[in-house]
């Protein structure tokens, strides 16, 4: 059976991992390749590297970093953060990335999704959506959640799918960082309305939360960052816990 996926997310700035404390198993927690390899050994199913560098110089560093990751990591990985041109996508894929995640750039110019899917295939495009509920429903935000748009979560996810997105990575902004669980109701509605996989993001604080995301939220995969970086939860223990509760995971 197809397994539910656990995906650690690493924030990258100028080619280095930000946040995260030192792990006993690796010398340098700032080295994204070493940290990614450690997660891979612990049973991560995929990795996401999110570049938070704003400069052009940092971008070049990112392509070099992706090459290094591709040389050392034997599971699929996604690269995201500020990707807004087809040539960025081409450079990252040629460097060995399996998928790219787009967020603000796609909301500002939805045709970007069509372009990537047409040129490189739908499996390459992860459409990341940051949203939070208000009086008008779930509103999508750009620029790291700072600026609201006129797009609504469920409509935008559907549109992204029809334009050729291969997966939806949904972050509930109100749940993100507060460790009280994922936005399972919205997740389930998304998953039911789409034919492509949905990755849950934002809110993981315990193993139970992952179980909820998969069962109540009907998510295909769940992503977390700080929980893994600060060693509050080890991926292998999490997967063992999920397997004991009848959720199909790769052990």
């Amino acid at each position: 059976m197809l397994a539910k996926r656990i995906i650690p997310c690493l924030d990258i700035k100028d080619g280095r991992t930000v946040k995260g404390i030192n792990f006993v198993d690796i010398r340098d927690a700032g080295d994204p390749v070493a940290l990614g390899a450690l997660y891979s050994r612990q049973g991560a199913d995929e990795l996401v590297f999110l570049d938070i560098t704003a400069t052009h110089e940092g971008r070049k560093t990112l392509v070099e970093l992706v090459k290094k990751i591709a040389q050392h990591i034997n599971i699929p990985f996604t690269v995201g953060g500020g990707i807004d041109e087809l040539k960025d996508v081409e450079a990252l894929l040629a460097a060995g990335a399996d998928k790219v995640s787009v967020n603000s750039s796609a909301l500002k110019r939805p045709g970007f999704i069509d372009e990537i899917a047409h040129n490189f295939g739908a499996q390459v495009v992860v459409c990341a959506i940051d949203a939070k509920p208000d009086n008008a429903g779930w509103t999508c935000y750009v620029s790291g959640g700072r600026i609201p748009t006129d797009k609504k979560l469920f409509d935008w996810a559907k549109e992204a799918e029809s334009r050729g997105a291969g997966e939806i990575l949904f972050t509930s902004m109100n749940h993100d960082g507060v460790k009280r669980g994922f936005a399972c109701e919205a997740l389930a509605r998304l998953s039911d309305s789409l034919r492509i996989p949905v990755i849950a993001s934002g809110g993981a604080g315990s193993m139970q939360h992952f179980e909820d995301a998969f069962i109540n939220g009907k998510a295909d995969a769940a992503l977390a960052a700080t929980l893994f970086h600060f060693k509050e939860l080890e991926i292998s223990s999490l997967k063992k816990y999920l397997a004991e509760r009848g959720i199909v995971v790769r052990l």
């Binding site: 397994a3 199913d45 739908a122 291969g166 492509i196 996989p197 995969a221």
Partner: peptide
């Protein structure tokens, strides 16, 4: 969902040298 995306298990149906040392139901 389509595409079939992610980790799934492999069932050997016939002997193949490609799967030497690969456990049954490997992902």
């Amino acid at each position: 969902k389509v595409p079939h995306m992610g980790w799934n298990t492999l069932q050997p149906e016939k002997d193949s040298p490609l799967f030497a040392g690969v456990p049954k139901d490997a992902y």
